[in-house]
Nucleic acid binder design. Structure first.
Lengths: 162, 162
DNA sequence: ATTATCGGCACTACTTGAGTGCGGATTGAT
DNA sequence: ATCAATCCGCACTCAAGTAGTGCCGATAAT
């Protein structure tokens, strides 16, 4: 439904926390204590981040995790990709990203294939160009984009559903 | 997992088809015949689009569906919103959008709440500013946004309309 | 040794997505 | 009036993905 998973959410929280202690080795317990995240799940998430080489783990007592790169050099895209795979947006034409399959049966005649791929790429691009650091810091007042319009200015109030 | 559903995919195909016959009333069967989309599901999708006032239905023999507005004035955002609800991206801070709930237990201390909302809004904005018409036509080579920015700058950019 | 920590396997429960069936209501053609 | 094509609405199954948990072994500092 076009949303990120809890795993990603937890991962971002954890990474943000690690970013604040850059250079230090932080145990998962510390993070679990600070935020209402199930310990066990947090461990799963950190494991995935570790396998993706976004964080490094140290075992044993006084062990824990640490960012392998500074937060400015960690993109949201890498994080999301590590925790839930690269976004697909559509089941069409994503063969090259993950499983190398081109099995979309609609593909050959699908009139929206490439545009959908384009949308996916736009979202993906945005994620690749957004750093963890920019997420971690308190940021500028949000400028709602909605007001500026588009297409034809309609946009109605859309956004609400029954 | 950050992807659009089949419903949306089918909806886009159907709408694209309707766009090609603007002004005419097209029965669902015709669309079902042309693309490998389960009839029954297609009907569901068209019903939703109808309830969202994106298409108008005509009942009885020779009945069918037609776009309510020209494709240039139909945004991808409206379509997605009609078929799967507005994108949330995160379970945090979306209270005002769908169920009016602010139940995210991480919310109060969550260090990434507002950035995640911002990401959601960026994606949403892109969808609101992308018209059905631009999806329907074979389109221009993709110009990545990457180059221009990032991290916490505003990336506004792109978002092209037809 | 003891203790704190990560690592891996496997499992349950819940939610969502895809797809289907059936009968009813509406409307045009015969 | 009848028939056929079409939309309408409810409710249901089946599969897949998400959230979360349990257990125990491996490491390493004390």
């Amino acid at each position: 439904m076009l949303k990120l998973t809890k795993r990603t959410e937890y991962g971002l929280i954890a990474l943000t926390h690690l970013a604040q202690r850059q250079g230090e080795v932080v145990p998962a317990r510390e993070i679990g204590d600070r935020y209402p995240i199930p310990r066990r799940l947090l461990a799963e998430v950190l494991k995935d981040l570790c396998n993706a080489d976004l964080v490094a783990s140290t075992r044993g007592a006084h062990g824990g995790y640490a960012l392998v790169r500074p937060a400015q050099e960690l993109s949201l895209g890498e994080i999301v990709s590590a925790l839930e795979g690269a976004p697909t947006v559509s089941s069409c034409g994503d063969g090259d990203l993950l499983h190398g399959e081109h099995s979309c049966d609609v593909q050959s005649i699908c009139p929206i294939r490439s545009p959908l791929v384009e949308i996916k790429d736009k979202i993906w691009q945005m994620m690749l160009t957004t750093s963890l650091a920019s997420l971690a810091q308190p940021h500028k007042p949000y400028r709602p984009l909605a007001s500026q319009t588009q297409v034809n200015g309609s946009v109605k109030s859309s956004i609400e559903s029954p």
